[in-house]
Design a protein around this nucleic acid. Structure first.
Lengths: 181, 181
DNA sequence: ATGTTTCCCGAGGCACCCTCAGTTTAGCGA
DNA sequence: TCGCTAAACTGAGGGTGCCTCGGGAAACAT
């Protein structure tokens, strides 16, 4: 794979900047034409680099996801119960950077073809691992499954898009019901 | 307000039938043109009766909401704790008849101009009432607010659109964390 | 300087939304 | 039964957004 042309690299950068601004302001459903325009590029160029909205989101989230996964790995050293809780909160907070991201990630978990699938799978694996640790330590009620945790996480992420404070309270209550009595 | 013409009444009926089918199959975001076509009517006729998608949804939900509110009133006679839990489950289940309805209702609660606002406000009032009763009976933890319950309800409703079983489990856990220890 | 390859451009086809000027028709009164 | 009129219906068309693809431009190697 030879190096990309300089103009291509420049344009990708400008597109990502414009897309980040647009997604922050209007969610992941923001129209793509204005993004291209703002990047000083034609719409075809955008599609040339990113075949679809998910691919664009994936590129935007790359570093952010790396940081999140690193955080998850670090948490695997902390006390199991609090670590699991912290992880859930971290993911929920992350998924709220862009409105609509929670839905996108939830869909990406099921859809093998999604550009976000790998990242979602990694999040899921990390959740499994942290939950298993918590189970081993007796920090969570035995009936809590990995799906339960994932469901709570996406639900909280979705809620966070509307009200961060309410999402935190939802997590407070639900975690109280999941952690060992 | 004089009685509507017979053809208008007929068409409204056919439109509602077609819309119900389409919303069940494709969610509240289903294209409206096919609905009109399926009802044997031009697109303009649909808009003549329902100025927007929300108005159509409102009409579809009318009886269903009446039944839900009646259920809520009846629950106000039952033991407070279980009544509150049953109410939350009932609303969550209701909001899952059509994909996307949870979002629509959540938006309708905030948006005064929404055709669904009144219904949402009634649901909210009923929630307040059932929660107040539960508080009075000491059946819920004191820090649980009405917003908390509403948040949980919409989150569960949203989850239900993806997996009914997971939504039920989410409610199990969250309610355990909200009800008195 | 030239050739090749990569990249960019943007008009245009598609889907859906919603409106409104013109046409049809139900229902009423003579 | 026959107009008449208000109510209802129609569907072309303008707006927005998605995405493609053939032709043109620009980078880079030689």
């Amino acid at each position: 794979m030879p190096a990309r042309r300089a103009d291509a690299r420049r344009n990708v950068g400008k597109l990502l900047d414009a897309a980040d601004a647009a997604f922050r302001d209007h969610g992941t459903g923001a129209p793509l034409e204005p993004i291209a325009r703002r990047a000083g590029v034609a719409i075809g160029t955008l599609y040339g680099h990113f075949p679809n909205r998910r691919a664009l989101a994936r590129a935007l989230l790359r570093e952010r996801h790396d940081a999140l996964f690193a955080r998850g790995d670090r948490l695997a050293e902390d006390p199991p119960g609090p670590a699991l809780a912290a992880w859930i909160r971290a993911v929920a907070e992350h998924a709220a950077v862009y409105g609509g991201l929670a839905e996108m990630l939830a869909a990406g978990l099921d859809d093998e073809a999604s550009e976000l699938h790998d990242d979602c799978a990694r999040m899921s694996a990390l959740t499994d691992r942290l939950l298993a640790r918590a189970h081993a330590a007796g920090a969570v009620r035995p009936e809590v499954t990995s799906s339960d945790v994932l469901t709570l996480t996406t639900a909280a992420a979705w809620t966070r898009a509307q009200s961060a404070a309410q999402a935190d309270r939802l997590l407070d209550h639900a975690l109280r019901g999941m952690l060992a009595p």
